[in-house]
Computed example of a mutant assay.
Amino acid sequence: MNNYQEIMNLESRAEMTFDNGLFDEHLSLWDQNECKFESPFGNFEEAKTYIDWLKGFYEMTQKLGGTRHLILNPVVEIKNDIALFTGYLYIINKSNGSFMGTSVMNDRFKKIDSQWAFVYRSVTPDQDLSNLLH
């Protein structure tokens, strides 16, 4: 697998592990020493606080019927041991297929011991989410 394929594999696995509540596997995709996440729903700089939040966010989405996150228009730039990803996230309701939202994702990966790992993710929703944030 080349570097681009490895990054896209990690992107897909991150979304699938969230959608299926596989938190240990999701966390294994991240560098345990460098984990920064930014979104309107929360900002985290430690793997433990990020995964604790992710579990709560998953529970909230399950009450709405669950999710399927689809990655669209990926752009990957790789320079040495750093990779940058930008793409769209299209989110649908698992139980009925209805549209839930779109976001722009900006991710950064670092190659550690010949393996790529997430070190940063920023999620910027396209829709006004003020009604969900209160």
Rank of each mutant, 00 (worst) to 15 (best):
A117D: 01
M1I: 05
N3K: 12
K94M: 05
A83L: 10
N9V: 03
G56A: 03
N96R: 08
Q127C: 04
N106P: 01
M60Q: 11
Q32F: 02
V76D: 15
R108Q: 14
G56Q: 12
L84V: 11
F23A: 06
A14C: 08
F23T: 12
I91D: 03
M1Q: 08
A83Q: 10
V75C: 10
M60R: 13
K94R: 15
L129C: 12
T61R: 08
S122M: 12
K48E: 14
H69K: 09
G101M: 04
Y88I: 10
S28H: 07
K55C: 01
D24C: 04
I78A: 10
N106Y: 07
W116Q: 09
R13C: 06
Y58G: 06
G65N: 00
W53S: 07
D19K: 01
Q62G: 00
I51C: 08
F118G: 02
D24Y: 03
W116R: 12
Q115D: 13
P40L: 08
S12W: 02
K36G: 01
D113M: 04
K63L: 09
F41D: 08
H134P: 01
T49L: 11
R68F: 07
F44I: 07
E15T: 12
G97R: 11
L10S: 08
G65S: 02
E59K: 12
K36P: 00
G97W: 06
R13M: 12
G87I: 03
F99R: 03
M8V: 04
N96F: 02
I71R: 13
F37V: 14
L84A: 05
Y90A: 08
L54I: 05
T86V: 09
L22W: 01
Q32G: 04
K63R: 14
H134K: 13
L22M: 06
D19W: 01
K55V: 05
L84Q: 09
Y88T: 04
T102A: 05
T86N: 12
A117G: 02
V123P: 04
Y90D: 11
M100V: 01
S130V: 06
Q62N: 13
L133A: 10
